[in-house]
């Protein structure tokens, strides 16, 4: 049995099957990201004064990653164009760049994630003095790196300060050692905070660049809340991680498909070139969509 129009277009619609398929799929993706963007807007517009996080992402890295993704998009179309003139070698070359770009994008994104997991915010019970730019201010909220027992720590939160008791299984064997409570830890504070306006924040960031920060000793009993820059920190980081994480999964999925067509699936170029070109085109459409989502994600999450 043969399914018609897998490679040649159907005369009356003028398209082949998988092209209809991918556009339908992209339509559903539009709705998926549309819902997430709506959520973003609502959470942001509804956020009380001074609670919306901004200005904490690494803009140069984000910009670079944008360029990486744009490059991968153009190599996809260039690869497809090469196939159209029958130049398989050049197609291989361009798509290799695409795949490398995808990996680079994911690598850079993971690095950014790691940076965030290292960063913390403490909400204190009383105000202390810290530097914002060159100015000294009183505040009960500090962001920065957290140091404990000589190491920078990841993923700390209020619960961690209390420690956890030992866990034993039924026979009394210890399966998880006790984590002793924390009495105090050090913060290496950033000289700015997201409660500032974007302008002030950028200014403070510039002023403090290259200046060594003093560590602040913080007693656990003074801490109202402690959180790393993880999804539960705030609705901003929640939507940031959800959107970029979902987008990252799309990058990964797209890269795997493109790789499959490029490598193990390339035999089809010999047996059914038209269908092979269709596959390249369809996977490319998905890839451009992923790029397109990022084009909105980048300004919305990094800049605004």
């Amino acid at each position: 049995m043969e399914i018609p129009f897998t490679s040649k277009p159907r005369p009356d619609t003028g398209i082949y099957n998988s092209k209809v398929g991918i556009w339908l799929f992209l339509a559903s993706e539009v709705m998926l990201f549309g819902a997430l963007f709506s959520a973003y807007i609502l959470l942001r517009v509804g956020a009380p004064e001074g609670t919306w996080v901004h200005g904490l992402l690494n803009i140069p890295i984000g910009t670079f990653n944008t360029a990486v993704l744009i490059t991968s998009s153009v190599t996809v179309v260039l690869g497809w164009a090469s196939l159209q003139v029958g130049n398989f070698g050049r197609y291989k070359f361009y798509q290799a760049i695409t795949i490398l770009c995808a990996l680079a994008f994911l690598g850079i994104k993971s690095y950014e994630y790691r940076e965030k997991f290292l960063h913390h915010e403490v909400w204190l019970n009383h105000k202390i003095k810290v530097k914002h730019g060159h100015q000294e201010v009183e505040t009960d909220r500090i962001i920065g790196h957290l140091e404990y027992e000589g190491h920078h720590q990841y993923f700390w939160n209020t619960k961690r300060l209390k420690g956890t008791p030992e866990e034993k299984d039924k026979d009394g064997k210890v399966i998880k050692a006790a984590v002793p409570p924390v009495e105090s830890f050090k913060m290496i504070p950033d000289a700015f905070h997201y409660t500032m306006t974007p302008k002030e924040l950028a200014h403070a960031r510039k002023e403090s660049a290259g200046v060594a920060h003093e560590e602040i000793e913080i007693k656990a009993s003074d801490v109202k809340r402690l959180s790393a820059f993880v999804p539960s920190h705030s609705t901003y980081f929640a939507i940031y991680f959800t959107l970029t994480g979902l987008h990252g999964l799309h990058v990964l999925g797209g890269a795997i498909v493109i790789f499959y067509i490029w490598g193990p699936g390339a035999k089809m170029w010999k047996t059914d070139p038209q269908r092979y070109m269709n596959r390249v085109e369809v996977s490319g459409l998905f890839w451009h969509f992923v790029d397109l989502v990022w084009i909105f994600l980048f300004p919305v999450i990094y800049l605004l």
Partner: peptide, 22 residues
């Protein structure tokens, strides 16, 4: 119509598993 619920499901999963506050 389903994708928005999928998005909502992912967000509620984040609420349940990662402690976010969507």
């Amino acid at each position: 119509a389903f994708p928005p619920l999928e998005a909502a499901g992912v967000m509620q999963l984040m609420d349940n598993v990662f402690g976010t506050s969507f």
